[in-house]
Nucleic acid binder design. Structure first.
Lengths: 157, 157
DNA sequence: ATATATGCAAACGGTTTGCATTCAA
DNA sequence: TTGAATGCAAACCGTTTGCATATAT
């Protein structure tokens, strides 16, 4: 999905709710869809401060992130390290995350069988599934390598 | 595992680290293994305040909870609602959680096939799995019922 | 014209921490 | 005796909010 379509979709979303397209919202939308990394509210705030364009306050960053999550433009991801991370949704399929406990790296994965088993668990218990959050914590390929290197050198972890 | 064994195990843990068995730690340990509910630091603090025994400050509650998690006596559970919940571990097998988005109820489940698929995902990606966190958010049996009732009565959700 | 957004700074809420005092070993 | 633990209150940190001002429609 390209920038222009996203923009249209955002405008429609705002109209539906009688909200206004401000230069701040415009700027945040653009910036957020420009990156494919996971980012925090603070990171986004700093990007906007450094790069040029209409100034955006911290409060507006938070308010707009909330709006974008509501509208299904962004998803938030709780890595359990205090701050929420965000990633854009449009053009991305659902996935879960691997988080490296050594370097913080995040990778995405999708495993249909896990998704299906989650539904089965819910059904079995009489619940109705709304969403889920699966995080695998481990060591990424390069941190595993580093650790093995250290072990060979006789350094205890 | 009965209270006395847990107590011994805790004393050994403290000795190993040259930490001391204080009346506060004793009281927290007992209280925590007395309940089978999930509880927050604040809930625990209030239990200790209402029931009688040696007084325990909020700071000590937090410090001791940390200690018990380190020692593998408790596990913490991030429901994503701001505060951490705790549950005791000894005598409990690993499980994941269902969280009701309407009433906050928590149920536990264990699904071996999901556990195994997580390992497979990691292996496939070259990661080494350390732990995981799976939360299913949905509506519990009784909230589903309530919601259906409302729908029949023509009340929109 | 007017309802909505913004920026600022203060508030929030769970948790952590510095420090003087108390206590287990 | 002395290193560790406690209680208190202040600090922390990401996030939210009240309010006066600015702005999109």
């Amino acid at each position: 999905m390209k920038q222009a379509e996203i923009r249209d979709s955002f405008e429609r979303f705002l109209q539906k709710r009688s909200l206004r397209l401000t230069s701040q919202r415009e700027r945040i939308l653009d910036r957020v869809f420009e990156t494919h990394e996971h980012f925090s509210a603070d990171t986004l705030y700093n990007w906007l401060k450094q790069e040029d364009g209409p100034s955006v306050s911290r409060a507006t960053v938070y308010r707009t992130l909330g709006l974008l999550v509501d509208g299904g433009f962004l998803e938030s991801l709780d890595t359990g390290q205090g701050e929420l991370l965000y990633e854009h949704v449009l053009g991305h399929q659902h996935h879960d995350h691997l988080v490296c406990v050594d370097c913080g790296k995040i990778e995405e994965f999708f495993e249909a069988k896990i998704e299906q088993l989650q539904e089965e668990v819910c059904t079995r218990k009489g619940w109705s599934l709304v969403s889920h959050n699966l995080r695998l914590f481990g060591r990424c390929r390069s941190c595993v390598r580093k650790k093995d290197g250290a072990r060979e050198a006789g350094i205890e972890s």
